[in-house]
Amino acid sequence: MIKGHGDDIYDFPDIRINFSSNVIPGGVHPSLRNHLSSCLKCIECYPDPLGEGLACQIEHHKHLSAGSVMITNGAVEAFYLIAEMFQGKKSLIFYPSFSEYEDACLKFNHQIEFFHQTTFGDVGYSGLDLVWICNPNNPDGRIYDQEKLVKEIEDNPNIIFVVDEAYTDFLNSDISLESCLPEYRNLIIVKSLTKIFAIPGLRLGYLLADSTIIDGLYRQVMPWRINALALEAGRFCFSNLDHDKQEVAGYLQESQRFQNAINDIDGFRVEPSSTTFFLVEAPFSAAVLKNHLAHNNNILIRDASNFRGLTENYFRVSVQAPKENNQLIEALKEWS
């Protein structure tokens, strides 16, 4: 999907409040912004061809074995590289979820089976080659049980489990499977640096896997895919910035208030989420609501009707500061 994602602010030049993108509120950390401003000279030279310097830094930071990290041009590139490496195979995708798993699989001729996420743990994996899971799930914030997920990986050693952990930093609990990597060679974890550090425009992600998988993926890529500023941002983040758990906890608390307030508006139904983003079912078309809010309130939401399994009435929002959240609440009340 080239268009149809959130953060399509380029189509709405007068947006004041952007609820459509699942990045941390508040924007880029001031120290990271200052650092990038001070090292603009790096764009005068070619970057590290494969980003291996940053990969080694992450391996050291996370106490992972050498050759288990690969830097990617955003998490999305990781999905396409994985689908290409296993082209023509059979994949299972739980829905509703991020559309790029399906798009990547279709591009590389996968046979795809779709199951609703509520069937996780009950479906059989016979004949499958890959299983794609987003945890926490985009767009609804659903969290897959860690023990069940590990058991599925352990019981199916011949199936590759691709676990997208782009949003694990937006939780009060640690659900990452990073500690499982040394034990399970059929596990690929995809991570994003753009969400927690609010740098989606730099396109920076990475994946964790057994070194044999990493080696295979490297054989597919062209040099200089990751630009110099993105690599510089990654090096700085892993050297200088820790996730402020207290700040995240504050946003999670505000998310619960925000969800409850919207759910109390007549005609609107929130699907409860434990993270900073959530789905809302409106009593009318989400596309109509999105355009109205954008043009009349300068507020942008994510029309979620193009997620497989969702109707035209669904939209997604990501928590902002209380003052901004209240403006969306009031705008929705007007429609109610």
Rank of each mutant, 00 (worst) to 15 (best):
N158C: 07
N158G: 15
I159W: 09
I159A: 03
I159G: 03
I160M: 10
I160R: 01
I160Y: 09
F161E: 06
F161L: 02
V162C: 09
V162F: 02
V163M: 04
V163Q: 05
D164S: 10
D164R: 02
E165S: 06
E165C: 01
A166S: 15
Y167A: 05
Y167D: 04
Y167L: 01
T168L: 10
T168P: 03
T168N: 11
T168Q: 14
T168I: 13
D169M: 04
D169L: 00
D169Y: 12
D169E: 04
F170S: 09
L171C: 11
N172V: 07
S173W: 07
D174F: 08
D174T: 09
D174N: 15
D174K: 13
I175Y: 12
S176Q: 10
S176Y: 09
S176A: 05
L177H: 01
L177Y: 06
E178W: 01
S179C: 08
S179I: 04
S179A: 14
S179F: 09
C180H: 04
C180Q: 14
C180S: 13
L181A: 12
E183H: 13
E183N: 12
E183Y: 12
E183P: 00
R185A: 12
N186I: 07
N186C: 08
N186A: 03
N186K: 02
L187M: 08
I189K: 09
I189C: 11
I189E: 11
I189N: 09
V190S: 01
V190A: 00
V190W: 02
V190L: 05
K191V: 08
S192H: 05
S192Y: 08
S192K: 04
S192L: 05
L193W: 10
L193P: 00
L193R: 06
L193S: 08
T194C: 13
K195N: 14
K195E: 14
I196A: 13
A198P: 01
I199W: 09
I199V: 07
I199G: 03
P200S: 08
P200D: 08
G201E: 14
L202C: 05
L204H: 00
L204Q: 04
L204F: 05
G205K: 01
G205L: 06
Y206L: 02
L207D: 00
L208K: 00
A209F: 04
A209C: 11
A209T: 06
A209Q: 06
D210T: 02
S211N: 12
S211D: 11
S211L: 11
T212D: 13
T212S: 15
T212F: 13
T212K: 15
I213H: 06
I213C: 06
I213E: 01
I213K: 00
I214Y: 10
I214W: 08
D215R: 15
G216P: 07
G216W: 12
G216L: 08
Y218Q: 12
Y218D: 00
Y218S: 00
R219A: 14
R219H: 12
R219L: 12
R219K: 15
R219T: 11
Q220M: 14
V221F: 01
V221S: 09
V221E: 08
V221R: 15
V221M: 13
M222K: 15
P223H: 09
W224N: 15
R225V: 01
I226N: 12
I226T: 11
N227T: 00
N227D: 15
N227Y: 04
A228W: 03
A228M: 05
L229R: 11
L229H: 03
L229Y: 11
E232N: 13
